[in-house]
Amino acid sequence: MFKYIEKFLRGLGKPLISFVSRLGKLTIFIGRTLYNCVTPPFYFKLLVKQMIDIGFYSLPVVALTTVFAGMVIALQTNAGFSSYGAESAVAQVVLIAVTRELAPVFSGLMVAGRIGAAMAAELGTMRVTEQIDALSTLSTNPFKYLVTPRMLAAILVLPLLVLIGDIIGILGGYTVAIYQLEYNAANYINTTINELQMIDIYTGIIKGAVFGAIIALMGCYNGYESKGGAQGVGNATTNAVVSSSILILICNYIITGMIFTK
């Protein structure tokens, strides 16, 4: 009888301890990242390289996902609102859906898949091939050299990607509304401009910055702490993408809740 209870408690305790210790490690990692973001030396060249990698090379995927997101929202709004004068609703719904939710979330998820995975794989490989230790032996702080530029670049670049996603998503909606649903172009543009509020823009910027931090944190943390050869690097990559995607969706809900419920 006691044997079973003991077994049960052990089974309960082991994942709990491992969860708490992971949480602790992550907290230390966040602390080190913040500290190293504000103390010299800074590697500007690496920051610029990361910004190009994360920002510029993510443009095609962000553009493709947001354009189709805008298009499908236009179609669905037209289908759903057809009995109450869909023409003015389509522009407004596309505007709100794209700027507040779809552009930030799709940019976040796409960059998580593209960049979060790459960060985890690169840092993980550097860890298991001792390149991170090699940085230390060359008197270079591996945290400042590897983690800080990625973190800063992601936080700076994601909001820009979201803004570009906003424009492209609205254009997608516009294309469907004008060329497929044959609405009046001037009315559509007028509605969009009149209904556009500052809150739509800064919601996207805030979300972009938070998602950028999540992506870089999960990518770097999982890569930096990975061990156990090729399999360890594979696990790190999977964990980075899965955890950052989930966190992005959860944080998206929380941020929307904080901004839009009064």
């Binding site: 550097m126 001792e130 390149q131 090699a134 940085l135 230390s136 032996t137």
Partner: peptide
């Protein structure tokens, strides 16, 4: 530590 150098087993060259 800055007075030390190391040759790693796998080289550990930055790729």
């Amino acid at each position: 530590y800055s007075k030390m150098g190391m040759l790693f087993q796998g080289g550990a060259l930055f790729d």
